[in-house]
Design a binder for these strands. Structure first.
Lengths: 164, 164
DNA sequence: ACAAAACATTTTATATTTAAAATGTTAATA
DNA sequence: TATTAACATTTTAAATATAAAATGTTTTGT
């Protein structure tokens, strides 16, 4: 329902015009960038490894923590609810990619680790994943990378600083 | 399962260490920032307006397009699947917030518009939404805003430029 | 020691999301 | 004009997500 002359930006930012507030613009651009990258990664993971982004993320967190993580730690790091983590853990456990073992000190917690099979499986995916991300972001220079990192760090600080 | 000395960054970036590639770091920081903001907005919309982010986004796209949008246009702009848009449209239509009317030229397409009720409802939410975003991003200076916008624009170009 | 609070996780119910198949419509072309 | 391809949307099935309740464990305060 656009007339021909309209410049169509087919994403979130299309909602905006010049009078709108700068912060909203920034937020929508951030959202657009993230969504674009996320969708490409999701599609590739499905096509080439028949898996999903949440499952990849789950395994990535474990790969970075050789001593394992509790369910709660996984939930926090993945930024999703506890129930969500439980469900994904059930799947991966059923496929023999992770182990869940009790902790001596605290019978409330479970320690989740990658199995050998899981670690091998993840290694393949991680290499491809890194190639894809570099493909998407690699056109930025070292300096630009650093600048954006710094700016996003400050942005993050501002958001984190707010209560609740 | 972290020992005491470990610095715990409770988000996606915790997966990384210094040897990892810069592009991955940038991607994960982007993802973390977006998720943090998204979760806050989602919680606020639920608490104060008993609605969801996708529903807000749907209405926001329509508010910016007084002549209405087709389902496909909504899908593209919201960056979600067609089936998703159908579901949200059913809800909003059931609540009398949008209209779906056939288009004379093309019986395949539907033109979706906000009802008066929908437009009023959205106006309230949009004002609050803008306050929340400014609260989160407003600590950045004008100059920083502009810098990040520019950098993200270039990042976006790089991603868009890829085939598929 | 006991009650109450905090904690870690799972379960439940519901909503969202996606990809892919199905349906119906229009355009292209041979 | 048939036939095929492209298009717009909805439906379906499976996965993912959330909030809130339930369960069991540990800590705290009295």
């Amino acid at each position: 329902m656009n007339d021909e002359a309209t410049v169509v930006e087919l994403n979130h930012e299309s909602r905006l015009q010049s009078e709108d507030h700068q912060s909203i613009r920034l937020w929508l651009r951030l959202l657009t960038c993230t969504n674009m990258i996320e969708q490409r990664l999701r599609a590739r993971l499905r096509e080439e490894f028949a898996t999903t982004l949440p499952r990849f993320d789950f395994m990535a967190q474990l790969d970075r923590a050789p001593d394992g993580l509790t369910m709660g730690e996984l939930s926090q790091r993945m930024m999703v609810s506890g129930g969500n983590v439980s469900g994904i853990a059930n799947q991966l456990s059923g496929e023999g990619l992770i182990d869940r073992s009790p902790v001596p000190d605290n019978r409330r917690t479970l320690c989740v680790t990658l199995t050998d099979k899981g670690r091998k499986r993840f290694a393949d995916m991680a290499a491809a994943h890194e190639r894809w991300v570099v493909e998407m972001l690699g056109n930025l220079s070292q300096v630009e990378h650093q600048l954006i990192m710094t700016h996003l760090a400050q942005l993050k600080r501002g958001v984190t600083a707010l209560e609740t």
